[in-house]
C-alpha cells in the first residue's frame, strides 16, 4: 500500500512498479491477439504469462518485506498461501471437468468469485485500516464493495439461469420497477453514508454490501436466459471496474490498469455481443429495469 513516493523510494519498489507495467502491456497484447481465431489461443497463454509475472512480483515483495521484519504477518501469509492452493485446485478441477456446453455458466461462476474477491479486498481496506480511512479510500473502496457485491450475486444468478436451475427460472420480482428504484436508492444511500460518516464504517459497509448483493439479484432475475451471455459480459466489465476501484483504494498500478482494461473491453464486447443478437444492449438490460419493457418484449 503506501503512497507513490514511498513505493518508489526503494529499488525493489521501482522494480515492482515496472514489472506491473510490463504485465499490463502483456495483458493488452494478449487481449489483442484474442481478436482473431488464428492467434486467440496464443493470446490467452501470453495473458496468463503476464498474470504469473505480476503474481510472482507481488510474492517477491511480500517475502522480502516479511523476511526483513521477521515474518510479523506470518499468519496472514500462511492463510494466503493455503487460500491460493485451495482456489487453484478448485479452479483447475472445475475448468477441466466442465462439459463444453456448460462453459458459459462456469465463466459466470469465475466472474462471481472474482467480484467477491474484489469486494473483500475493498472491505478489508475500509474495516481493518489503523485509524479512520481517508475520503479517497472510502470512495474508491466503497465503490469496490458496491460493484463487487452486485457482480457477485448477479453473476451467481446468471450462472444458475444458464444451468437451467428450475427455481431460478421461476423466480420473479413483483413490481420490479419500484423494487429496482428502492434498492438502488438504499445502496447509494448506504455508500454515501459510509463516505460521510467513516466512524460508523462497520455498519455502513455491511449495509452497502447487503443492499448491493440484493441489487445484483434484482438486476439479473428478470432477464431471460437467452440474454444471459450479454449480461455475463456486462457483469464481467463490472468486476473489472470493481477490481480497478480496489486498486485505487490500495494504490496499486497492476489492479488499476488491468481492472480498467477489462472494464472498458467488457463494455465494448457487450455492445458487440448484443449487436450480433440484433438487439441493442439497452433493451437487453431493460429486461432488468422497469422501463423499456415494450422494446424488450417486441424483440423477444
Amino acid at each position: 500500500m503506501g503512497t507513490l513516493a514511498e513505493t518508489l523510494s526503494t529499488p525493489l519498489g521501482v522494480i515492482e512498479w515496472f514489472v506491473y507495467l510490463v504485465s499490463a502491456v502483456i495483458f493488452v497484447i494478449g487481449l489483442h491477439l484474442m481478436n482473431s481465431p488464428k492467434t486467440a489461443r496464443k493470446g490467452n497463454l501470453i495473458s496468463a504469462a503476464g498474470m504469473v509475472l505480476a503474481c510472482a512480483m507481488a510474492f517477491i515483495v511480500l517475502f522480502v518485506n516479511e523476511i526483513s521484519n521477521g515474518f510479523r504477518h506470518g499468519v496472514a501469509v500462511v492463510l494466503l498461501i493455503v487460500g491460493i492452493a485451495i482456489g487453484a485446485v478448485a479452479g483447475v478441477v472445475s475448468a477441466k471437468k466442465v462439459k463444453m456446453t456448460d462453459m458459459p455458466q462456469l465463466v459466470s461462476i469465475f466472474n462471481t468469485v472474482g467480484g467477491g474477491a474484489a469486494a473483500l479486498v475493498a472491505l478489508n481496506d475500509i474495516l481493518t485500516s489503523e485509524g479512520l480511512p481517508t475520503i479517497v479510500v472510502l470512495i474508491t473502496a466503497g465503490l469496490g464493495i458496491l460493484i463487487g457485491s452486485v457482480t457477485f450475486s448477479g453473476s451467481l444468478v446468471a450462472a444458475g439461469k444458464l444451468q437451467g436451475l428450475k427455481f431460478m427460472r421461476k423466480l420473479t420480482i413483483p413490481a420490479k420497477g419500484v423494487v429496482n428504484v428502492v434498492v438502488i436508492v438504499l445502496t447509494v444511500a448506504s455508500f454515501v453514508m459510509l463516505c460521510v460518516m467513516p466512524e460508523q464504517r462497520l455498519l455502513f459497509s455491511i449495509l452497502t454490501t447487503v443492499f448491493a448483493l440484493v441489487y445484483g439479484l434484482v438486476f439479473v432475475i428478470p432477464i431471460g436466459g437467452a440474454d444471459m451471455p450479454v449480461v455475463i459480459s456486462v457483469l464481467n466489465a463490472c468486476t473489472g471496474t470493481a477490481v480497478a476501484m480496489s486498486g485505487l483504494a490500495i494504490n496499486n498500478i497492476a489492479l488499476i490498469v488491468a481492472g480498467a482494461l477489462v472494464g472498458s473491453a467488457g463494455v465494448t464486447l457487450s455492445i458487440d455481443m448484443s449487436k450480433a443478437m440484433n438487439r441493442p444492449l439497452l433493451s437487453v438490460l431493460a429486461g432488468g429495469f422497469g422501463g423499456g419493457s415494450a422494446a424488450a418484449g417486441s424483440a423477444d
Binding site: 487481449l31 503474481c55 466472474n111 488491468a258 481492472g259 477489462v262
Partner: peptide
Amino acid sequence: GANSIHGIVI
C-alpha cells in the same frame, strides 16, 4: 479471457 484478467485482484 477478459474474465481471467480481472483475476489480477489476487
